[in-house]
């Protein structure tokens, strides 16, 4: 992807969450956006698979949050496959909690590498939101 396309994509990300875009044409930032989209789409696929397998678990609010994040980074769920969730609901929640925790750490690490201030803030906020979800899902057990 070229610099102009990368800049355009970062503008879209910032604009989607209400930040005033400040273009910083850095190819590494565009890779961070793509990585974030992959992380969130994989997590969303896992949540959907778990909700489908265990329809008694109240996971809809977490799906909404992940879809909002995915829209901000321009990701798509269609290309993502999820691991089958455990048969035991408690084990499924534990797996989800761990998965959310892992993504929160990855996003936190990546926001420290971002060049653009707008992308830094978006990734940091996403990390905090995913950490909140991990906490809430843990409390469902």
């Amino acid at each position: 992807m070229g610099v102009a396309q990368a800049t355009h994509r970062l503008d879209d990300v910032a604009d989607a969450v209400g930040l005033d875009p400040k273009p910083q044409p850095d190819p590494e930032d565009d890779r961070l956006v793509r990585d974030a989209a992959l992380q969130v789409s994989t997590l969303l696929a896992l949540v959907e698979a778990t909700a489908s397998r265990h329809d008694g678990l109240a996971l809809a609010p977490f799906e909404v949050i992940l879809r909002e994040q995915l829209a901000a980074v321009g990701g798509s769920l269609a290309t993502t496959d999820a691991e089958p969730p455990p048969d035991d609901p408690k084990a499924a929640l534990e797996a989800l909690t761990e998965a959310f925790g892992d993504v929160a750490k990855t996003l936190r690490r990546d926001c420290l590498r971002a060049f653009s201030p707008a992308l830094t803030r978006v990734l940091a906020a996403m990390s905090a939101g995913v950490a909140q979800c991990a906490q809430e899902i843990g409390d469902l057990r």
Binding site: I65, L66, E68, Q69, L112, A124, A125, Q135, E136
Partner: peptide, 29 residues
């Protein structure tokens, strides 16, 4: 920046302890 992000997460989790619901982008308007 690392210090700020660490404390962002701490504050976002503290919001939950006082009854908030998770949000997609804690800290953003």
């Amino acid at each position: 920046r690392a210090y700020a992000v660490k404390n962002l997460t701490r504050a976002a989790l503290a919001e939950l302890t006082w009854g908030a619901k998770p949000r997609a982008f804690p800290g953003l308007p």
